[in-house]
């Protein structure tokens, strides 16, 4: 399920989707991609997220995997290649071992800019390896999800199976008594939300992040209802009891490190 969402900030000036003000791009970098006027959280890439969340130099990525084309879906290879060139990632998840304020953990970041952060075989496998290694090394897992694409259409049923596979890896890690902190960023939808991302021991979200199963457009088309104000936002999810807390981006590293500390 693809949605039209605002583009990542580029160019000298960027229009804020929260307050429609023009923001100087250099200014954004300083604020952690938060609008200086209204606090709107701009979407950020996996590497920017990594820099903001983990201790400098602490991240060791897992061996890289690249997508196959199990269905021979036309145009899929080109799409992957294009996304790789645009993002510098092998696929939509950046996964490895890291330290957050001196506490070790396994970390996965799902990047929306790589094919909508959709989950195909590579994202599924990398997440499973992340939880498996965490189970073996008795480490907590932190996953930052931003998968508006849900399960990746181009891999058909194989993408669907990644939902089961990742949930099972989470289940094993959980049964070993280990902590999983799931951080939902804009947007976390479909098969990404309805599998590993929903199952954190602690589920956090960034302000304003879109969180849900079916995309708002689909819901509006199916029900022919006017969607409630703020439908599927993090605030909506909090109000309906679906997440533990909303954490603004500048506080996230500190917040998560405290949780990791208390579960050591």
């Amino acid at each position: 399920m693809m949605m039209n969402l605002e583009e990542a900030p580029e160019g000298l000036w960027t229009r804020c989707d929260g307050c429609a003000q023009m923001v100087f791009s250099k200014e954004l970098e300083k604020t952690g991609f938060l609008c200086p006027t209204c606090g709107h959280h701009f979407r950020i890439g996996a590497f920017q997220r990594l820099a903001m969340l983990v201790d400098e130099g602490s991240f060791t990525p897992f061996p890289p995997l690249v997508a196959a084309n199990p269905l021979d879906f036309p145009g899929y290879e080109q799409k992957i290649k294009q996304a790789q060139e645009q993002t510098g990632l092998d696929d939509a998840a950046l996964v490895g071992k890291a330290a957050i304020q001196n506490t070790d953990c396994m970390l996965a970041i799902v990047d929306f800019s790589f094919m909508g952060g959709s989950m195909g075989s590579v994202v599924g496998e990398q997440l499973v390896r992340c939880f498996e290694r965490a189970t073996a090394e008795r480490l907590p897992v932190v996953v930052v999800s931003g998968g508006g694409g849900g399960a990746r259409m181009q891999e058909g049923v194989f993408s669907l199976m990644q939902m089961a596979k990742t949930v099972q890896a989470v289940g094993r890690h959980s049964r070993a008594g280990l902590l999983f902190v799931s951080i939902l960023t804009h947007p976390t939808m479909g098969g990404v939300y309805a599998s590993f991302a929903a199952l954190g021991d602690i589920v956090l979200a960034e302000p304003g992040a879109l969180i849900g199963f079916a995309g708002p457009r689909i819901v509006a088309e199916t029900t022919r209802e006017k969607l409630p104000e703020g439908f599927q936002t993090a605030e909506f999810a909090l109000e309906h009891g679906l997440i533990d807390a909303i954490v603004p981006r500048p506080q996230l590293a500190q917040y998560v490190s405290r949780l990791l500390e208390w579960h050591r």
Binding site: M163, Q168, H240
Partner: peptide, 26 residues
């Protein structure tokens, strides 16, 4: 598919699916 509705989302459609997958798995 699972119903794409406002109330379904309010009551955690994604979470319910994830939990069902988890429950069956083990």
């Amino acid at each position: 598919g699972a119903y794409p509705g406002v109330e379904a989302e309010e009551r955690g459609q994604g979470l319910a699916i994830a939990q069902c997958i988890e429950g069956m798995s083990f």
